[in-house]
Amino acid sequence: MAGQSWLADTFAGIMIITAAYCVSRLVVARRQHRPTDFRVDGVHVLMGVAMAGMLVPRLRVFWAGGWEIVFGVATAWFAWLTIREWMASREPRTRSAVSHPRAHHLQHVLGCGAMLYMFLAVTSARAASGGSGMSGMAGSAARFPTLALILALGLFGYVVWTADRLPGLATVAAFAARPTSAPVPAGAASYPSTATQASAMAPREDGQARTDGQAPDDSRLRAGQAPATPMSPRLAACCEIAMGVTMGYMLILML
C-alpha cells in the first residue's frame, strides 16, 4: 500500500490490537456466557487482520484471492441480515422495540463492501503492473476512485455517528453494579452493543433457544436471574471507530 511506511505500521498496529481485543471478547463471552455480538466481533477480527496485511505486506496471512471470498460472503451475509431486519422492523409488533436496526448492519455491509473493493482493486492493480505484492497498489491504483471516495465518506459518516452515540452507551461497571435480582435499572439500562443483538437474545416465541450467532444466556433468563453483564458496548463502538478511520485512510490512499 502506498503511503508513509511509519504511518502504515501505526495503522497496522492499531488494527492488530483491535483484532486481538475482538478475539478476547469472543473468548471471554464464550467462556463466561456474557452477551456480545459474535458476528460483529468476528468480522472485526477478520477486518483487522486483513487490513494489517494490506498496510504491511509482511503481515499477510491469507492466500491470494482468499480475502475476496471472505469479504464477498460477509458482504452478502450482512446485506441479507439488513434486509431481514428491515422487513422485521416493518412489522408493528417489533417496530417499537427496535428502532432502526438496519442502520447497524448497513455499517457492516459498507465495511465489508469496502474491504472487498480494496482487495479487488489490489488484484487488478497487481495484474496490470505484473507485480506480486500488495505494495503494488500505488496511490492511483483504484480503477473507480469515485467509488473509493464514496465508500470512505460513508465510513466517515458512520464513524461520526458512532462517536456521537458513544457517551449514551452504559458502561459495563454501571451494568454490573445493579442488584442481580433486579431488572435493569432505569437510567443504567445497558445491553449488548448492538440493537439487533438485543432482539436476537430474546427467547423465541416457541421457547426454543436462538441459533443465530448470539449468546442468549437463556438459562439465566429462565431462572429469573438478571442476565450476565455484557461485553463492553463502548469498547465495541471504539473498535467500529478505529476500523472506520483506518479503512477510510486506506481508501483515500487509493484515490
Binding site: H100, G168, V184, G187, A198, A237
Partner: peptide, 13 residues
C-alpha cells in the same frame, strides 16, 4: 426501565 435504544449500537442511558 425506560432505557432508550440508540439506533444500531446499543441502549442509551
Amino acid at each position: 426501565s425506560g432505557g432508550r435504544r440508540i439506533g444500531g449500537i446499543g441502549v442509551a442511558r
